[in-house]
């Protein structure tokens, strides 16, 4: 599908991020399109996590965080025209390590809906739908009232996905979601991601270039806070335009 026909979800203009004197992201301008999986690769300290966390304003809590430039979600400035809470309901996030709260599986899933004041009548349905979408329902449907922390690592990460899906976000941010998982659990999370792409826009930060190649529709390469190159995943991995991209994906550094 040509880009002109797809809708722009996020647009970033001249975004700069620094912590005190350290520049984490430099002059970043980028569009993220609806229903794509944008993979973001790059070595440590390349600014890819800072970039991801500015999309749901989770950087706001960092000390000495300073950001300039403009970030818009569907044309609306996320700092001036949308409240932080509403933004985070629309832009869900999955962290590197699974972080279930020490609550039951059910209460983990309902954490967002309860805080958002959603109607209790739909709670049973939300729990089932969210866990099903995260392909965890069959494994836990008979023990929804056991602690989420008792699940295995891969199940915990899928519980976190279910918890995030309970708010029906439009965009999902994955921050190296498989770094702590074994290959089989990783494959299941990747399958889930590809299913989620049908209804959601996904940004995936990963240290695993092969994962980026497997699931990304487009791939962006960050290096030292700079967006070096972004394009269709096939193009990036077969014919990168920039020498540095080529060096990174062929494993010459990083």
């Amino acid at each position: 599908m040509p880009r002109s026909e797809t809708k722009v979800k996020f647009s970033l203009h001249d975004v700069n991020i620094r912590y005190k004197t350290i520049r984490a992201v430099k002059d970043l301008s980028l569009n993220i399109y609806e229903h794509e999986i944008l993979s973001v690769i790059g070595p440590a300290n390349s600014g890819k996590s800072s970039f991801l966390r500015c999309l749901n304003r989770l950087n706001d809590f960092e000390a000495y965080y300073h950001q300039t430039g403009q970030i818009c979600l569907e044309g609306k400035d996320i700092y001036r025209q949308i409240s932080a809470e509403d933004l985070r309901k629309r832009v869900g996030m999955i962290f590197a390590l699974p972080i279930p709260l020490p609550l039951t599986i059910r209460e983990n899933v309902l954490y967002g809906p309860r805080r958002a004041g959603m109607s209790r009548r739909n709670f049973e349905q939300i729990v089932e739908d969210s866990l099903t979408a995260a392909s965890l329902w069959d494994e836990v449907k008979d023990r929804l009232d056991t602690l989420g922390t008792k699940l295995s690592g891969g199940q915990q990460q899928r519980l976190c996905i279910a918890r995030m899906l309970a708010l029906q976000p439009e965009v999902i941010l994955f921050d190296e979601p498989c770094s702590g998982l074994d290959p089989i659990s990783t494959a299941r999370v990747e399958e889930t991601m590809l299913e989620l792409k049908e209804k959601h826009t996904i940004v995936l930060v990963t240290n695993n270039t092969k994962q980026a190649a497997r699931v990304g529709s487009r791939t962006a390469f960050f290096l030292m806070g700079e967006l070096v190159e972004v394009g269709d995943t096939g193009g990036i991995f077969t014919a990168p335009r920039d020498q540095r991209t080529n060096d990174y994906i062929t494993g010459r550094f990083g």
Binding site: G92, M93, C160
Partner: peptide, 10 residues
């Protein structure tokens, strides 16, 4: 825990 809670719009 706080990050998760914030990320869920709390």
């Amino acid at each position: 825990f706080r990050q998760v809670s914030f990320s869920l719009g709390a």
